[in-house]
Nucleic acid binder design. Sequence first.
DNA 1: GTCTATATTCTGATAGAC
DNA 2: GTCTATCAGAATATAGAC
Lengths: 195, 195
Amino acid sequence: MARTAGSHSGITGPKVRQAALELFAKHGYAAVSMRQIASEVGVQAGALYNYTPDKQSLLFDLMQAHMTELMAALPDGNTDQPLQMLEHFVRFHIAFHHDRPEAVFIAYMELRNLNEQNFAVIEEMRGAYEDKLQGILIAGQASGVWGVKDAKIATFAVIAMLTGVNTWFRSAGRLSLAEVQDQYWEMVRKAVGAD
Amino acid sequence: MARTAGSHSGITGPKVRQAALELFAKHGYAAVSMRQIASEVGVQAGALYNYTPDKQSLLFDLMQAHMTELMAALPDGNTDQPLQMLEHFVRFHIAFHHDRPEAVFIAYMELRNLNEQNFAVIEEMRGAYEDKLQGILIAGQASGVWGVKDAKIATFAVIAMLTGVNTWFRSAGRLSLAEVQDQYWEMVRKAVGAD
DNA sequence: GTCTATATTCTGATAGAC
DNA sequence: GTCTATCAGAATATAGAC
């Protein structure tokens, strides 16, 4: 029997989120209409409002889910081994971001389209993630594994460098992700002055 | 005498570009209306079309002007001195981008809002800029000043790292721009393996 | 849970008066 | 060069039928 209107399939919710993720990443939040999302899902625009109170919540939920996943996926590690922890962070960040390019893109590009209150939530989560790296850099500095002048600056520099991979790396290219991870790890290791 | 309608002030053109620059950077191209730009300038929406054929051209002109300025401001340098050239590139990139945060923001965030033909133009200019850095990295590698495994990857890594400064640095903060330049130069120098 | 229909507002762009 | 007025369509969100 063909799928009919009001079929109660039970998977429309995830499909709405997936369609919003792809469309926001491709065209930008402001450029995407609820009608476009509905069309991608295969329903009329009005039906979307069974799954989100408004467009803003749709964006916020995507970004919050991404940041929550990011924090959950990053293990704590052993603070007695800063070099190992830093290497793990570098490889983790590259792999995690490579696996979900749309969510990463949205998380970086659509911050200004969050309302004030939603922005504060996401910014705090981002800060918590940065603090993880900063903690590693401070631990390594304290135990003399490397020497960075300013852990805060090094944190920003490393994260920007690693996140940049997403702008150019393609699986079909001349390098494997593992090779990219190796080379970025070598650059980070040298940059912080570890031998 | 008060400023009247049709005052032929002769400065409306630049004001349109400046208003578009600020509004696009703050809210995003798609989220800004021609009426908003007109309001910022102090004219009615229809008057804008004396200065731009359409909204897309306004975006393109801003991005193209920015990239042209960027290429013009980056001097060629002496290829016999790769270390000096790299240091100069690092300091230049940070300073130039710091001086025009709105244009930089637009150049990175609004690429997807360019039409196909305009996108190709901007992408080529961006490629030419990246080639400047890549040329420096290859020159230093050839003369044994440093050792980078892959000049292309190192180019992406360095540019991403340097551009990231704009996301956090504020003149009123605890560090001067010169200090930031010093620390980024140290990290880049170490990352490429120069001693 | 999804539909159709609609309220209300806004959009980019143009025409013609001054 | 700027204005007012307007076109034709698209936007978010809601109401009520099924």
